[in-house]
Design a protein around this nucleic acid. Structure first.
Length: 753
DNA sequence: AGCACGCCGACT
DNA sequence: GTCGGCGTGCTC
């Protein structure tokens, strides 16, 4: 986001000299001092860029192996001159150790890559080397010049072959799914491009000048589900490619890469397309990365980690479903790939296209203020109507008998599902909870299936008869009787997808399909897609019409184009509505709208498509906006609330998190950290930075460690950044002075608090 | 964070 | 006698 850029690159102007500083000549005449980013321990005030001696001048971005203590680590020659402070603390050349090996076989990482990494490190408060080495393909860390040369030779050979498919195919057996090949057989006829809708044409007309512009802008492509955003991405990529540049397309999840990859491969026959995500084998990931880095790959499609892929001729960045929380890395350097995309676009003068039907409020705010260009597509391709939204007040539904649980679907929703089955159409039941039941309960003594290591219930999974903790993974066979009192009658409480699937089958067992036979219910969630390729397999079955009712979690609401679905039902959205998180409503709205968008993708069926929502809170403003498919109204009401509460995008947040075996230890750490920060703020005039009291997060204990966190808030990103940068060294000291802190970390721009 | 050095207890 | 417990200290 530009806010992030504007406020943070002050004092971040990096000079990019072609050469490193000259050697002082104190030792060997041939020795050159090089600055190297290495993964230094974050402790003890050690710098993250260290000096070494090299026999020759090494260009910035060169990958190296250097000694550190008794270890040998990978490092990157870092551009720029040392700061005044660094220069003052610099070791004399005589005390420097020589570089072990320079990986000259690899082209140096480009200056823009170094700048993106350094920005990320500074903004998210991590060491440069940590970020630099974490975002390189893991395989690259292990290779020496010989190994690297071998890989590059293989890549070049592959590139030069008339049929580059031949070789990789053999190695592909371990791959995630049958992916379209990097370079498909070149067909003689050009690909068929669908005619553009008026809106698509308008959007592209406004986008086109961007490819020639000196300072391209960031755009929000705000398009309802089914409005054809992907076609816009394809055309934009076409323009970037036509200008001889590379396009980078980000998607939130690995699951979404194969189908998008297929579409791009079909549209761009003969162009080199690679994917980058953690599902690739290490060798494949390195190969694809090298292909992009060397400028061979013209299209790079990937998940958040792909934002760091070096691209010498970057000409477009697309961030699909920009609101998706998956773009935020949740460990290590907690970066937001979407925000970094905006920064990178500016840095490398490439237009950025953020696409969503339900933009994040941050992005929406920027679009409204004019920082991003707003490109709207309000019509579905083929003029299909959006599904009619029907909100069911569960309080008005018949109450079950004493001691009985309410059925999974209330009568009107059940009737709607039956309707679909009778017409040979499909229904999709969305329940964002895995397993059979979220908790087991003993009616006799009140025992519940708690996790011994976490402050959370263990979920009952019927399939393998286990009680499984979704926080730490601890699993046990489900007990036959209550472990406390021996009562044999322990009951599941609540409902997950596994149970929903079972209950739906029962509820519909009397229904006859038009073709004869009983109703076919299927389930798709993380548990049914554990094995590689199984998601594709199950989706194919749905597409082939072998399923009447599909039960699933979030997983089924993202991106998949279900042609025969005319009914989507949200079984229990209330659980998300009252989560203690300020983004809960925003997320729920996005996921419901996205789920609803699965219905009526086929224009002919769109008119009779419906989305049903079962809720106990029908008066909630979210549902009114959902009924009207009115994101704008929803965003306005949310923004008003955020402004009142001083929450993002009206303020900027950071979270200091800590884990310790003893809760009070974690609290003491945060309390002392808070005191230190407040003392610093007092002397440095940071009056507009607010530190809240340390609190336990919603799940306070995970895997035997007590978690505590402290919120830091400021209307000024710069003020927040200054505090964090000055505070971190103190926190390192504090940690070592306080025994028993297992971990601590700062999360800048946390998604949930 | 690693990785070594170093100075005490229980084993072959 | 030495194998190994993990406290402490260092890394351009």
């Amino acid at each position: 986001m530009p806010g992030l850029v504007d406020n943070c690159d002050a004092g971040f102007v990096m000079s990019m000299p072609h050469m490193t500083a000259p050697a002082d000549g104190a030792t060997q005449a041939s020795a050159h001092r090089v600055r190297v980013a290495v993964e230094t321990p974050q402790h003890a005030g050690m710098a993250d860029v260290l000096d070494y001696l090299a026999e020759a001048e090494l260009p910035p971005g060169t990958l190296l192996r250097v000694p550190l203590g008794r270890r040998e680590l990978p490092g990157v020659v870092w551009p720029g001159e040392p700061s005044a402070e660094e220069a003052a603390n610099a070791l004399p050349a005589g005390q420097l150790r020589p570089v072990r090996e320079a990986l000259l076989a690899l082209a140096p990482l480009p200056p823009a890559w170094c700048q993106l990494v350094e920005f990320t490190a500074r903004y998210y408060q991590r060491a440069i080397g940590e970020v630099a080495l974490a975002v390189l393909p893991p395989e690259l860390r292990k290779l020496d010049n010989t190994g690297l040369a071998k890989r590059l030779k293989r890549l070049h050979k592959q590139m030069g072959l008339p049929d580059p498919d031949a070789k990789p195919k053999k190695r592909r057996k371990a791959d995630l799914q049958p992916e379209p090949e990097a370079v498909p057989e070149v067909p003689a006829s050009p690909p068929v491009r669908p005619a553009l809708t008026t809106e698509q044409a308008e959007v592209l007309a406004r986008l086109s000048p961007q490819f020639e512009a000196e300072a391209p802008a960031c755009h929000l492509l705000f398009g309802v589900t089914g409005s054809g955003k992907t076609e816009v991405y394809l055309r934009a990529a076409e323009q970037a490619l036509a200008a001889g540049r590379q396009a980078l397309v980000l998607v939130p999840e690995i699951n979404l890469t194969p189908q998008l990859e297929a579409r791009f491969a079909e549209r761009f026959p003969g162009r080199r397309l690679v994917s980058l995500h953690s599902g690739l084998t290490p060798a494949q990931r390195l190969q694809n990365w090298l292909s992009a880095h060397e400028g061979h790959a013209e299209l790079v499609l990937g998940t958040r980690l792909a934002i760091f892929c070096p691209l010498p001729r970057l000409g477009l960045i697309v961030v699909d479903e920009e609101h998706d929380p998956s773009y935020k890395q949740q460990d290590g350097a907690r970066y937001s790939a979407r925000d970094l995309a905006v920064y990178r676009g500016k840095l490398e003068r490439a237009p950025v296209l953020l696409g969503s039907a339900t933009p994040s409020l941050e992005t929406w705010q920027h679009a409204r203020s004019g920082r991003y260009q707003l490109l709207t597509m309000a019509q579905r391709v083929g003029q299909g109507a959006l599904p009619a939204v029907r909100v069911v007040d569960m309080a008005k539904q018949p109450t079950p008998g004493q001691g009985q649980e309410a059925p999974a679907l209330c009568p009107p929703v059940l009737a709607a599902v039956r309707d679909r089955i009778e017409r040979g159409e499909q229904s999709l039941l969305f329940l964002n909870r895995r397993g059979f039941a979220p908790v087991l309960n003993c009616g006799a003594c009140g025992w519940k299936s708690g996790c011994p290591h976490c402050s959370a219930w263990r979920v009952f999974h019927k399939l393998d008869r286990t009680l499984r903790c979704h926080h730490c993974g601890f699993a046990e066979r489900v007990p036959k009787a209550c472990p406390d009192c021996g009562n044999l009658d322990i009951q599941p409480v609540g409902r997950g997808t596994e149970r929903l699937e079972e209950q739906i089958a029962t509820l519909l067992q009397d229904v006859e399909r038009p073709g004869g036979g009983s109703v076919r219910v299927a389930r798709i969630d993380a548990d049914t897609t554990r094995h590689k390729g199984s998601l594709e397999e199950q989706l194919a079955a749905v597409h082939a019409g072998e399923v009447d009712v599909l039960v699933g979690t979030q997983m089924i609401t993202k991106g998949h184009d279900f042609r025969r679905v005319t009914l989507v039902a949200a079984v229990n959205p209330d659980s998300a509505l009252f989560a203690a998180d300020f983004r809960a409503a925003e997320r729920l709205f996005a996921s419901l709208l996205q789920a609803g968008g699965r219905a009526g993708r086929d224009a002919e069926a769109a008119a009779r498509s419906e989305m049903w929502v079962q809720t106990w809170n029908p008066q909630h403003a979210l549902f009114a906006a959902l009924k009207a498919h009115d994101f704008t109204a929803f965003a306005a009401s949310q923004l008003a609330e955020r402004e009142m509460a001083g929450l993002p995008p009206y303020s900027h947040l950071a979270l200091l998190r800590t884990e310790a075996r003893e809760g009070p230890v974690a609290e003491a750490f945060l309390q002392q950290a808070r005191d230190a920060a407040q003392a610093w703020l007092k002397t440095h005039g940071g009056a507009d930075v607010m530190l809240y009291a340390p609190v336990p997060p919603p799940v306070a204990k995970v895997a035997g460690l007590e978690r505590r966190q402290m919120l830091i808030e400021s209307p000024s990103r710069g003020a927040l950044q200054r505090l964090l940068a000055n505070w971190l060294p103190e926190l390192h000291v504090l940690r070592s002075s306080l025994k028993g802190i297992a971990r601590w970390a700062v999360d800048v721009d946390p998604l949930s608090i």
